[in-house]
Design a protein around this nucleic acid. Structure first.
Ligand SMILES: [Mn+2]
Ligand SMILES: [Mn+2]
Ligand SMILES: [Zn+2]
Ligand SMILES: [Zn+2]
Lengths: 151, 151
DNA sequence: TGCTCCATTGATAACTGTTATCGAACGCGA
DNA sequence: TCGCGTTCGATAACAGTTATCAATGGAGCA
């Protein structure tokens, strides 16, 4: 959670410009401000919080523009979505500890039995003050149906 | 993903009844049908899909009843929500592989450096047809601020 | 069994997060 | 500088979820 230096920010914005050119994306003012905000905001910001930040520099910007650009960035690998299954609540009654495989394409969630993995080992302790209740490994990739070449 | 036997279902529904009594929850017809559907549906159903299932047995049931009961079940540990951060899109520019700690209380997401963990080891291969792109470990528990006794 | 009370239900309005639509504005190559 | 296709802002529409509230119905008790 260390602060990112201004030099690093500029370097990443410059790389961003190159990647936009590469991908045939127009370099709009909005686009750049949004990306810069993204890099400068530490953590895992929501569209709403990014909007709040960007609005300070472009008061007239639309929330829809933020959404559209975030989607564009994600599609082009310029940023990443933290959770692939944030769309709707999902529940399960399988109370046994187990892991999940999430398909990046169809977003389906598959159970992975716990025994398939060797226990996760911590080399050091978690940061001070954090109390652990459980953990599970989330695998991401293509599921059987989505990986087929015929798709 | 093996099919659950009818005997097991009944056993779990019976346990459900006991736990409801224990928790001071009324044993309503809707409640039991919803729970039974939940146990019988394999995978990670959404409220909408549960509603669809339950509606076949109680055509007049309201979607709100399904939501309310799912929340009640989760609050009492009768079922589990698969993802703690399904509420809204979250993005990050931290492209280095890393893990996450999600606070069960405030839902904040914290980065955990990759080096804190020994590499995850697969004892066997993933199920046939699944292609892995990445994985990360999700820790759940209380963060520093939420774990404080003064809260 | 019948009565009372409070939890729960169903209907629906309201709210939040997200996407679609569309005319205006703008970036970019010619 | 011009012209075209992209992107923008405003806003309607949509999806998922929660709040509201009157009606219903479990659960304990007479
Ligand atoms: Mn699962
Ligand atoms: Mn992260
Ligand atoms: Zn898939
Ligand atoms: Zn917390």
């Amino acid at each position: 959670m260390e602060q990112i230096s201004q030099v690093d920010v500029e370097a990443r914005v410059e790389r961003f410009r190159q990647e936009c050119r590469h991908a045939g994306l127009s370099l709009t003012h909005q686009r750049e401000i949004i990306f810069r905000a993204l890099v400068e905001m530490h953590g895992h910001p929501s569209p709403e919080s990014i909007y709040g930040e960007v609005k300070r520099q472009i008061p007239a910007i639309s929330l829809a523009t933020v959404y559209k650009n975030l989607k564009t960035f994600i599609d082009h690998g310029l940023t990443r979505e933290v959770s692939l299954h944030h769309g709707a609540l999902r529940v399960e009654t399988n109370s046994a500890p187990h892991h999940h495989f999430v398909c990046v394409r169809c977003k389906e969630i598959f159970d992975i039995e716990e025994e398939l993995l060797a226990p996760v080992e911590l080399r050091r302790k978690l940061p001070e003050g954090f109390s652990l209740q459980r953990y599970s490994v989330e695998f991401q990739g293509l599921c059987r149906s989505c990986g087929e070449p015929s798709s």
